[in-house]
Design a protein around this nucleic acid. Sequence first.
RNA 1: GGCCCCAUCGUCUAGCUGGCCUAGGACACGUCCCUUUCACGGACGCGACAUGGGUUCGAAUCCCAUUGGGGUCACCA
Length: 550
Amino acid sequence: MSQIDPSQIVTRFAPSPTGYLHVGGARTALFNWLLARNTGGRFLLRIEDTDIARSTEDATRQLVDDLKWLGLEWDNAELVYQSRRLDIYNKIIDGLMSRGLAYEAWETQTEMEALRKSAERARRPFLYKRTNYTADQLAQFKAEGRKSVVRFVMPVKEYSFRDVVLDKDITQPANESQDFVIRKSDGMPTYHFGVVIDDEEMGVTHVLRGLEHLKNTFNHIALQEALGYRRPTYAHLSVMLNPETGEKLSKRDRDRRIRKRVQEVMRSTKRPAPDIAAAAQMELPRFEHWLATETVQLDLTEQPKVMAVVGLTEGDLPEIMIHDFRRNGYTPEVLLNFLALQGWSAGGDDEKFTIPELIKRFTVDRINASNPKFNREKLRSFSTDFFAAASPERLLSALRDYLRVNPESSLNRGTDEQLATILRVGHGFHTLRDMDEKARFLLIPDAEIRYAPDAVAKILLKNDGEGTKALAGVRGLLASATDFTGHALEAAVKSYCEEKQLGLGKVAQPIRVAVCGTAVSPPIFECMEFIGKPSVLARIDRALTIAAAS
RNA sequence: GGCCCCAUCGUCUAGCUGGCCUAGGACACGUCCCUUUCACGGACGCGACAUGGGUUCGAAUCCCAUUGGGGUCACCA
């Protein structure tokens, strides 16, 4: 083997545009990007849109947006779309056919299915065998309007390649060679074909991809040999698993979470299905079908409605797409750091890295072969630490980004200065969503404060309205305060409590409920300063009215 | 089911050219401290080499088997 000049390393990420970027795809992209950046090589992006039915332009845009958001910039100025390269593929396929290395096959998908079924019944593995059609058959197929596919004549021999993650040679015996499809009946190349041609033409030297492609590699090698192409270095990455199911992380996991919650709610509240379906504005048969069928998923309009009915929020669902993480208030540097640790480690005890550190320390030989379970708790902890250490500028830009994808948040009303204050007062949060949920009352009109019934009951009404009395008592003090800063308010309320022989909590908690609507908030005196005296008094009056009416 | 891959605390992992390991770190969890709430923070603690055989003076580290988990068997990538 010749020594590869590291500066010549070319990697690529080649997603198929079927939706937002999946977290597993993001990790694959990250590893390829890291390898290129670590060695001063190039990282390329190619769109594998050969599945016409599933690929959309929207999806391509979302994919590109997610990659940009992550900061995984690619080095090809022009994106490569496979769908625009049909001429190139067809020319090569014609060449293969003229050399007798590829041929047309006429079996329909139903016929293929039947063949597979019978092989299964006979309990032997199915391998496609070339059939010789008579002239009559061919004429009949064409008369029927059948469309042929093109299959590659895969030489029957043992194939072997070295996988640098597994650090071993992977071999496929000769009797598993099979003439696989390289051009589909719609004229598009298959993945196997496009990937081989494009990797060669783009000069890709290193292919880091998911483990699900391990066996495909033999097909690719056979094609490379037939075409006289170079063989890139292969590295197959482990599969990230859902910690609850132990299966591959899947978009379906979110749906599963909702279904589980619906079932819990139905069991505990004895609320019947028709009732929930109606509340979610869904047809009952559709709702029941979904409820009973794992493989059926709610669509994007149904999902939020059902969630609202059973009291689930965005933050309760497992994030699967990069966009989910963005919406839930994670930053790219945290996500990337964490993703790098799913299957890779720097060795030793270090695990918190900036992006430049990641680039510097990344090597392929430290990638692990076993499948990690995706542990969101730890990601959350990384996020907490990141926000605790971030500069005010980074905090604000992260929050602005979060708000762009969460337009319904009340914090969108804030000025930069206000948001900076909120960020400072509310420090110690895990994610921006967490911060948003805790601090959103700061930027909504007094009349729109919603008083949480359990907080009102526990803090204001309990013990014969003890809290309400305390609130009414301290109102005068607040109304007459001349200095409405957090410090001054705290000092004033503290001395008030001493004077009245009350614990601080006995007074502070009722104020909190009155001002925030909940029993939980950032430090209350600073919140009061932020909101200002008129609003604080208005909110207290409103709370007193509500308490009196309860 | 066939073929392939993998196997250290609940989780992510360090360690794997055998002795520095009565196995290290982080998350989670538990106790305590801080505290006007929730968090944050601090201290301490709990906790693993899947099993069975080898090889060796000596194995988490090497070999084999078993078990378990995962992947794959498309005109989807």
